[in-house]
Design a protein around this nucleic acid. Structure first.
Length: 585
RNA sequence: GCCCUCGUAGCUCAGGGGAUAGAGCGCUUGCCUCCGGAGCAAGAAGUCGUAGGUUCGAAUCCUACCGAGGGCGCCA
């Protein structure tokens, strides 16, 4: 707890009901008061229904007891309704007080429940020398949002970009580059619209073809692999060059997406390479490793595959090589032992669910993963095309992330230009970029994480509906009201009665921190999206019913304060989603 | 074969023990044209995949089944 915390009204009400339970029925003192937002009042407490059986009393009678025991000083009105619901209304001054307190605080009064939790977030993980594509969209966007939310909630977040930067394919690529020194692939040698990874991607395909058709080249490529793994300085230098150039290209996309990943967060497969032998040795010491068909494996005790055989993790392949099972085991060991993580999140496609289950099981059996540490696979569904199948280009190829974003920005530009024809080309470009990128991110984040969703650009850049653009526009409109009002530091007078629409908006604003806390636990950003959309709608209701600028004082200042807190909450919420909140659009 | 995820309004999706199941888009009918129309109000539209069970109470929890997608040793 810090000085920033403004205890939500729901929590205050819960505490009041808990007090009443303690006074009326001491033996039920620890019971959940079951306080929720209500359509019939500010809040409803369902404790009487839940506890009546344990108290051997009718729900309505227990409800009446609780009403009698409630501290009436804090509450405006309490009444029993239906079979035993407690409908609770709070005094207007209390509600105004919350608005004032949140407005006065830089954190909007939100607590830091994740304080001190060292949290590793593993996300994005593109492959070196390959282009980022639609398959990297969700992990990057969801991971970035979780990083922002958890960080805001006080967690010590450690971002980890587990780059695919090691493997036999690099031997082939390096050999090919070596034999074609005239080929341009560095970012400063390429024309504007071609990136390093685009060039390398093409070169890799050429190398692959040559590898398959030219035995001489295949032999030289294999020798390169040996040289790379053996640490040959010249080969290693080339590899480092490829990695650095690829990261340069990734950073361009990260910058464009507003993703917080930096070079310092890059801890790829190569980083764990020197630890693999030791990792395997340690696993062998625990006795969970088995030799099978000349390979080293760990058989699961929990999961079986076809023919009822236990599913294995492949520690060392028959040819002596290591796959990603081994790397991931070394990784989890490192993150527990050296990074000293309290919590490890893997923002990875849901198809990897079994893999992570096996990794976590093995880490537990090895004694690395204990009950003190949380390891969680944060799975997400597939991005689908208009045909309901995994998103591909019309030709059936992979959709490049750059193309996908360009398309969204272009459509957003058309929409914004139509809405606001007065913008200069420069301003239009800037806003279109923010709107288009925000639209893509919001569309991704606002769907349930584990479900697949259909990528529909026209729908996501619309000004109406549950879209990022709608929220950005709502925010811009409120800022416009504040500019027009010449709003300074409006003081709230807690004495005027609350209009129903003011009350609805104020209660919604008060719930922001609880939503963030929930996202921090469930790791589901779509709940924040749903909240922000609901908040924007609550504001629309308020704006419709309550004139702001023309209102008399003190109502005018009070309403401006609601406008300002709404705008601040919207922009803050968008920010932790990783979405820009322009002042105008 | 086994395991995982998902089946909610015409479409896209929320809701994951509590009052008449919600939103957006689309559709119908009115209203306003007011601080930048992010309009507003009303309406039509649902056997919450099916069948059992637990519970005072189930879209929500459990079981079985049906349907869709995904996964199950030397790719990562």
């Amino acid at each position: 707890m810090s000085d920033h915390d403004v205890l939500p009204l729901l929590d205050q009400t819960s505490a009041a009901v808990s007090d009443a339970i303690r006074r009326a029925r001491p033996e039920l003192a620890e019971a959940d008061p079951v306080v929720r937002r209500s359509e019939h009042a500010d809040f409803q407490a369902n404790a009487a229904l839940a506890l009546a059986k344990r108290a051997s009393i009718k729900p309505a009678d227990l409800a009446a007891e609780l009403v009698a025991a409630l501290d009436s000083d804090y509450l405006e009105a309490v009444e029993v309704s239906g079979p035993g619901f407690l409908n609770i209304k709070l005094p207007d001054r209390v509600v105004w007080g919350q608005v004032a307190a949140r407005l006065a605080d830089s954190r909007l009064g939100v607590a830091s429940p994740q304080s001190g939790c060292r949290t590793v977030v593993d996300y994005s993980a593109p492959n070196i020398a390959k282009e980022m594509h639609v398959g990297h969209l969700r992990t990057t966007i969801i991971g970035d949002s979780l990083v922002r939310v958890l960080g805001f909630l006080g967690a010590e977040v450690i971002r980890q970009n587990h780059l695919g930067d090691w493997g036999t394919q690099f031997g082939m690529l390096i050999q090919y580059l070596d034999e074609h020194p005239e080929t341009a692939w560095h970012h400063d040698e390429l024309a504007g619209d071609t990136s390093t990874v685009s060039a390398l991607d093409t070169l890799y395909r050429e190398a692959r073809a040559k590898f398959d058709n030219d035995t001489g080249f295949a032999d030289r490529a294999r020798a390169r692999v040996v040289a790379l793994q053996g640490g040959d300085p010249e080969t290693l230098a080339k590899w480092k060059d490829i990695v650095a150039e690829s990261e340069f290209a990734f950073r361009e996309i990260y910058d464009r997406l507003g993703v917080q990943l930096t070079a310092e967060d890059s801890v790829g497969e190569s980083f764990y390479n020197p630890m693999l032998a030791d990792t395997i040795a340690e696993l062998e010491d625990t006795g969970i490793v088995v030799e099978s068909d000349d390979a080293l494996v760990i058989y699961s005790q929990e999961v079986t595959g076809p023919d009822d055989q236990p599913v294995p993790l492949m520690l060392r392949k028959r040819d002596g090589g290591f796959g990603y099972d081994t790397t991931d085991l070394a990784t989890i060991r490192y993150r527990i032992r050296d990074v000293k993580a309290d919590r490890m999140l893997y923002v990875v496609d849901s198809r990897q669910a079994l893999h992570f289950r096996l990794i976590f099981e093995a880490a537990r059996r090895a004694g690395w993963l204990t009950d003190e540490v949380e390891a969680t696979h944060v799975p997400f569904g597939t991005v689908l095309g208009p045909d309901g199948k995994p998103f591909k280009t019309r030709a059936g190829g992979t959709v490049r992330l750059t193309d996908l974003l360009d398309d969204a920005v272009a459509r957003a530009r058309a929409i914004v230009a139509e809405k606001n024809p007065g913008f200069s080309a420069d301003l239009l470009d800037q806003i279109a970029e923010q709107a288009g990128i925000g639209a893509v991110k919001y569309a991704d984040l606002s769907n349930s994480r584990v479900k697949d969703y259909t990528f529909d650009v026209d729908r996501m850049v619309a000004f109406v509906g549950d879209t990022g653009v709608y929220l950005q526009y709502a925010h811009a409109r409120i800022r416009s009201i504040l500019r027009k009002a010449g709003d300074t530091d409006a003081r709230i007078d807690p004495t005027p009665p609350l209009e129903p629409a003011e009350r609805t908006l104020a209660l919604e604003l008060d719930a922001y921190g609880a939503v963030l806390t929930d996202v921090g636990v469930t790791l589901e950003p779509h709940k924040l999206c749903g909240y922000l959309f609901g908040l924007a709608r609550a504001f629309t209701g308020f704006y419709e019913a309550c004139p702001v600028i023309q209102a008399e004082e003190p109502t005018r200042s009070n309403r401006l304060a609601l406008c300002r807190l709404t705008a601040n909450t919207l922009s803050h919420g968008l920010d932790v989603l990783g979405i820009a909140a322009p002042e105008r659009m």
